[in-house]
């Protein structure tokens, strides 16, 4: 597993100060609540959500979450992680995009939701098709552009925060987003024969 490219943002290493120890939760788990537990509890949903929106597949998302925390665990023993939130968010996006590209080669069928609160199966199918086409188009983008696009439009992050997470300037973020939007729009409006 390769570490994400680019600079890892650094703000604070003392992740033990994040979150508040809940004695009931500690008692329910039957073991002391460690700093790592608090870290996973606080940022696990965020990592899962980031990977889920990129992948849209339950099993793949679970695998990516495990990969992210395993790699974070290994890297934390070698160098201090000063900002866990930014680090985990970017790591999740990178690993999910990697999985999305590798999944493209396997040509899996899109996962169908068995139970949904959508108004009708027709609208649900249309949305699923749209989402799937966008995910397929993401796999054709360069890694930097795809990463910036996901952080901006899937995670709803500001330019400044994306620049800090990825380790590039705000102008570079804007440029990457502009290129990504143009390429994705072209892919959606004029799908390739393979996707069609």
């Amino acid at each position: 597993m390769n570490p994400p490219s680019g600079k890892i943002p650094a703000l604070d290493h003392d992740y033990s100060s994040r979150g508040v120890v809940n004695p009931q939760e500690q008692e329910r788990e039957g073991r002391p609540l460690t700093d790592w537990d608090r870290l996973v509890r606080d940022y696990g949903p965020m990592v899962f959500r980031t990977a889920w929106r990129i992948l849209g597949h339950t099993a793949d998302t679970e695998d990516v979450v495990q990969d992210v925390f395993l790699q974070a665990h290994q890297m934390a023993q070698n160098e201090p992680i000063l900002c866990w939130e930014a680090f985990l968010r970017r790591l999740a996006a990178c690993r999910a995009l990697d999985r999305l590209r590798s999944r493209r080669r396997h040509a899996e069928l899109p996962e169908m939701a068995l139970a949904s609160s959508q108004p009708g199966p027709e609208a649900l199918l249309l949305e699923q098709e749209l989402a799937q086409r966008l995910r397929d188009a993401l796999t054709h983008l360069p890694a930097r552009e795809a990463e910036v696009f996901c952080l901006r439009y899937f995670e709803d992050l500001a330019y400044e925060e994306i620049a800090r997470i990825v380790g590039i300037s705000i102008g570079a973020v804007a440029t990457a987003l502009h290129k990504a939007r143009a390429k994705l729009e072209m892919s959606l409006l004029h799908p390739s024969p393979e996707h069609a």
């Binding site: 790592w36 996973v40 509890r41 949903p45 979450v65 495990q66 665990h73 290994q74």
Partner: peptide
């Protein structure tokens, strides 16, 4: 499930 599985890792 993912969160519970990630908690199984020992603290770094």
């Amino acid at each position: 499930r993912s969160v519970e599985r990630a908690k199984q890792l020992s603290p770094p």
